[in-house]
Nucleic acid binder design. Structure first.
Lengths: 108, 108
DNA sequence: GATTAACATCGTAATATTGCGATATATCTT
DNA sequence: AAGATATATCGCAATATTACGATGTTAATC
C-alpha cells in the first residue's frame, strides 16, 4: 500500500492526471512561465533563473517532456525548449468540460 | 533536500501548482467526473463507485476541498459535494495564458 | 438512550518525489 | 587533441504521498 492504484482507473483518467501532476510543482510552473516570457526558445539560462541546481532543473525538464508539455530540440551543444501547445490545449479542454457541465442544479 | 523549495518561488506560482497538483491523481479525476455525471450533488456513493476504501476517498476529498476544487455542505448526516467553478475557471485561465502567448517564433 | 449511517482522523507501511553533488556524455572552441 | 560548455544520469538523503484498518465524531433513527 502506498502506491497509486493506477490500474483501477481508466486510461483517460490516468492520462489527464499525469499532465496535471507534471504541472503540479512551482519550479515547473516557473519553467513554463520563463519559456513564455523569453520570446524565443531557451536552453539553460534556466540554471541562472531558477533557485535550483542544474541537476534538479534537468530533472524537472524531463518530467515536463515526458508529459509532452514541452518539446526540446538539439541545437548545437545546447537544447532548445518550447511549449507543446497540443498537450496544453487538450488539458484545457478537459477543464472546459469540467466547467461547462455545470449547468445543473447547484447544491452549495 | 527532498522537500519542495516553495519559498523560492512566487506566491502565484505556488498557488497555481497546488491546484494542478490536486488534479494530479486519477482518483481525484474520477471523483470530479463522478460529480459531473450524477446531475445532482453526491455524498458518499463514491465509496461504492471508486476502487478505494472510505478512508482513502475521504482523504482525496479533503485534498480537493483544500485546493478549493470542490465545496461540501453538510446535509443531515451526510455531506453534499459539488465543483467550485471559480477555481476551475481560474486555472483554465492559466492554461489559456500558456497557450495564447504562443504567437511567437516557434523553435521545435 | 442505544443503534446505525456517514464521514473524518490517526497511525502506520509502502512507495514516490524532490534536490543535490558527482560523474558521464556530447558538442563546440581553440 | 585538449579544454570548455551544455545537458543527462546516478546514487543518495530528506520528505511527501498513497492507501488502509481502526477508531473517533456527529447526526439521524429506532
Amino acid at each position: 500500500m502506498g502506491i497509486t492504484k493506477s490500474t483501477e482507473f481508466t486510461t483517460e483518467q490516468n492520462k489527464k492526471s499525469l499532465v496535471f501532476k507534471a504541472l503540479g510543482h512551482p519550479a515547473r510552473i516557473a519553467i513554463i512561465e520563463h519559456i513564455l516570457s523569453v520570446n524565443t526558445c531557451i536552453c539553460n539560462d534556466l540554471v541562472g533563473v531558477l533557485p535550483l541546481s542544474q541537476a534538479t532543473i534537468s530533472q524537472h525538464l524531463r518530467e515536463l517532456k515526458e508529459a509532452n508539455i514541452i518539446k526540446g530540440s538539439i541545437e548545437g551543444n545546447s537544447i532548445c525548449y518550447c511549449l507543446n501547445i497540443e498537450t496544453l490545449s487538450s488539458i484545457r479542454n478537459v477543464l472546459d468540460h469540467f466547467i461547462s457541465n455545470s449547468d445543473r442544479i447547484p447544491c452549495c
